[in-house]
Amino acid sequence: MAYSGDPILVEELLYRPVHSLIDQSLHAKLGGFTTNGDGVGIGWYGDRAEPAVYKSTHPAWNDRDLREIASQIRTPLLFAHIRASSGTPVQRSNCHPFRHGRWLWMHNGSLAEFGTLKRDLVMAVDPALYPQIEGSTDTETLFFLALTFGLEDDPPTAVARAVALVEEVGHRHGVAYPVHMTVATTDGESIWVFRYSSEGETSSLYYSTDVAQVRQLHPELEALQQLGPDTRFVVSEPLRELPGAWHEVPDGSWGLVHRDKGEIHPFQPLVRV
């Protein structure tokens, strides 16, 4: 889940909605895993330019420290992620979101047969960035490939080039469908989202554009009544069903989410020439 808008307590976003992200860690409906208990992480922006990150290998529903800090953190931009490992170890350095400077990155999905592709992919990471890779996940590798290809200057082009590289390496190793992803990344001002898979069957991704409709979704959340019209949500699953409140990001698309605008564009891998 990603949130952008007026500062709000994290607990209002993580714990109060009926089908909150914490509830989804046990009862996900649309993803590949019903239970997502291999760790939890949040990233948020405060008084400094760079975001803070909290990560834990505890299941989200049983993380007392997360519950404790969520009642005290107020932020205008939050990334939150619950993890179901696709094969890499359950350890803090493998939990999302990942951070580099001002940037946060999180991902649902996988790079198929990552163990086979990993060496070729990490060798393509900029040598200056490589020492900053802390974990062993496909997600972090994809993040650092995007940084290598210019994420900080042009996120859509950088991600398109990173995905093209993964597909090229995958096909070279006989992997038919190397990429399956929904990605969210932010510099603390805007949020870019991507939904793409090599086989055209990608995990769900939704966004909201009208906070008034979100208020109808959650009359139990008094805090929403105080939020301004620029409030935006991005979620893997709707926090509660309400016709017209959530818009699905089409498969094979990228989107820009900002306080004063939202855009959706076609997404295609971009092979460098």
Rank of each mutant, 00 (worst) to 15 (best):
L205T: 02
E241K: 10
S71N: 04
A212K: 09
G5W: 09
T148H: 15
R240W: 02
A70N: 04
V183W: 00
H247I: 14
Y54V: 02
T35F: 11
T137V: 10
D6Y: 06
S25C: 07
Q132L: 15
V273D: 13
L77H: 14
Q213L: 14
S197V: 01
H173Q: 14
P238W: 12
I22N: 03
W105H: 05
G188D: 04
W246C: 05
Q91S: 13
L121M: 11
I69H: 06
T139P: 06
L224G: 11
H180M: 07
G170I: 09
Q213T: 03
P178Q: 02
H173N: 14
L270V: 04
F233A: 00
E222W: 07
E241P: 11
R215Q: 15
R102P: 01
V169G: 06
E201Y: 08
V10F: 08
Y3E: 02
W105R: 11
T75A: 09
T182M: 00
V193Y: 10
L205H: 03
P156N: 01
L239A: 09
V163C: 11
T202C: 14
A80G: 04
R161C: 09
T157D: 13
P76M: 01
E263L: 14
V271G: 10
K118C: 03
P76Q: 07
F143I: 10
L224M: 06
L242C: 08
E11G: 03
Y54E: 02
K29D: 02
M106I: 13
E11V: 04
E220V: 09
I73F: 04
K29N: 05
H171M: 09
L111E: 02
A162G: 14
E220Y: 10
N36P: 09
G200C: 01
H171K: 15
Y130D: 11
S197G: 03
S93T: 05
V159H: 03
A128K: 15
A245M: 04
Q268V: 06
